[in-house]
Amino acid sequence: MNVFRLAGDVSHLVAIIILLVKIWRSKSCAGISGKSQVLFALVFTTRYLDLFTVFISAYNTIMKVVFLAMSYATVYLIYMRFRNMYDSENDTFRVEFLLVPVIGLSFLENYAFTPLEILWTFSIFLEAVAIMPQLFMITKTGEAESITTHYLFFLGLYRALYIANWVWRYHTEEFFDQIAVVSGVVQTIFYCDFFYLYVTRVLRGKAKMILP
């Protein structure tokens, strides 16, 4: 555990809490892609199956359970509790275009051809692209509420901090996880364009982020 990794996990936690609290307090999930949230729930579910097989640390176990619980709570709020506000007409990204290649890749490129390893790899690849329905939705509607952009900012920050964590671990413990690092870098690239808009628009006091 290093400071980048801890800060990355905290950013991830903050992002998910921002989204949950926003939906809960506004009683609305307008502008939120339910598809991205289902994909994230799938990411956590397939990655954290090792909760049943290995014990790494209390921190690790607690964070995994919290991420799982909060991602399912988010999906529940969007599709059940506040489904009347769900913006399905703009949440039209075809997730099969993500799932099919990601399933194929996880069978081809993994550390061991076992169910748990393939599912872990699937979760890593899927996380890299799971935000695409949300970014697609923002592009389609041409705007995003500032709270939604704060959520995306912390999610992107979490990815960037994980890269710093990997650089640190490479130099201090010669740790290098090729699958996680390559997908992590790809994932972070998706946020770059958004980061630019966030800094130039949202941080200058706009209530909404309107796309150029």
Binding site: D9, V54, I56, N60, K64, W120, E173, I179, A180
Partner: peptide
């Protein structure tokens, strides 16, 4: 200690 392929990470 850490597992070989980063499973200590979240």
């Amino acid at each position: 200690s850490d597992s070989p392929n980063g499973k200590d990470e979240l």
